[in-house]
Amino acid sequence: MKPKAIHIVGYGINCEEETAFAFEKAGAESKFVHINDLIEKKNLLDEAQILVFPGGFSYGDDTGSGKALANKIRNRLSEEILKFVEKDKLVVGICNGFQVLVSLGLLPATNKNYGKKEVGLLYNTNARFECRWIRLKMNSKKCIFTQGIDEIDIPIAHGEGNFYASKEILKKINQNDQVVFKYIKENGQLANGEFPYNPNGSLEDIAGICDETGRILGMMPHPERAIFTSNHPDYQFMKEKLIREGKKIPEIYEPALKVFQNAVSYFKVKV
């Protein structure tokens, strides 16, 4: 049976279609659920194995990215979400979805203290929305979504992705293997805060984190926008090279699709 991914939509979330497509390509079944419908029918969550907070601009980022949607969920759905998290299920938040998870306190949730705000995604150091491709290094043995990925090229598109946490929290998430992705340079070295490799000023070049179980992932970059080779900024170079070598042009950019495949196989393995 295909695992079912529920994608929360509405109020300015806008990456649900490509995210759903990526999950389906990876073998999941995708379903869109408007946040208001979920509030009305809370048991909709029961049928899902994967809960997805796609990217976008929920509430236009007004009053701070992710905050308003998180407040609504806190008011209306906190019990159900906590229940979902406690089960052996997966949650992923991409970009605005990551900002929502952080505002909800579902990440990093050190000591499994779900609901406590512990980190922030602040304004980019240039205080401007930035859209560009960057390179990441996978850093966690724990995160379910990212196993088998080493380096990945991937686009970011956000105005508030500057990861911030206190020294204590940073120490904890490092100790607990919760730092999933770090921004690196083209040569594989850590970006060390240097723009544009680290595009937003994130502390310790952190681009994504997971909870202590590895089942909840939040990341600023967009893997769903990178699943085709034709998405890649080097596509034209790569294509020309392959043509000259008489080789086929692959359609799928494996490292990006892998994020979704890992989620799907987590359940397949179990069944």
């Binding site: 401007r128 560009r132 598109a157 699943i227 170079f237």
Partner: peptide, 20 residues
């Protein structure tokens, strides 16, 4: 300008505003 306009959303970009 190109950098501050999201040209990757919807997942279909092929020839992008900044090339090479």
């Amino acid at each position: 300008i190109s950098n501050q306009y999201d040209h990757e959303v919807q997942g279909g970009s092929v020839i992008k505003p900044l090339q090479g």
